[in-house]
């Protein structure tokens, strides 16, 4: 069977095994500006997970912080850094201990929603993923918080 291929890249980052449907959200999260060539594959066939999304970004190496932020949306994602068509580094998205400036607190009475303050959350549980606001101290499932994009 013929398969649609997404071009290999010479240099950059490949984010693979994103759960199908989450690709656009991940793309927003890492702030794709239009400077680099980006290929986004949606609902591609995957032997490992059935269906997946994939993102390839040319000429940009994601920082570990950016990689970790992906874990919030797509913990199963695998990240590969490419140079000269070769894999130079495989990174795993690791759920960070604390998350700064990335998510919005859903509590309308939280000070982060009335002053211009960088939000801070601590990860309290991994399964299911839960975070606690540094300011109002409320605890939320990661699905309940809004990712700041």
């Amino acid at each position: 069977m013929k398969q649609l291929k997404v071009d290999a890249i010479k240099k950059g980052t490949v984010i693979d095994h994103i759960p199908a449907g989450k690709g656009m959200q991940v793309a927003d999260l890492i702030n794709i500006s239009g400077e680099n060539i980006v290929m986004i594959g949606i609902s591609l066939h995957s032997k490992k997970v059935g269906k997946k999304d994939i993102i390839k970004i040319e000429n940009r190496e994601l920082s570990q912080e950016e990689i970790n932020s992906i874990a919030l949306i797509a913990p199963s994602a695998t990240i590969t850094i490419i140079k000269d068509f070769d894999v130079i580094r495989k990174a795993k998205a690791e759920i960070p201990e604390s998350i700064e400036g990335l998510i919005l607190c859903p509590n309308p009475k939280c000070i982060t929603n009335s002053e211009i303050i960088k939000t801070k959350f601590k990860v309290t549980d991994e399964k299911p993923l839960q975070v606690r606001c540094h300011y109002c101290e409320k605890k939320y499932l990661v699905e309940e918080v809004k990712i700041k994009i």
Binding site: N107, K109, T112, S114, H134, Y135, E137
Partner: peptide, 9 residues
Amino acid sequence: SPIEGAARY
């Protein structure tokens, strides 16, 4: 304060 987290801030 009625705002939660105000003292921390």
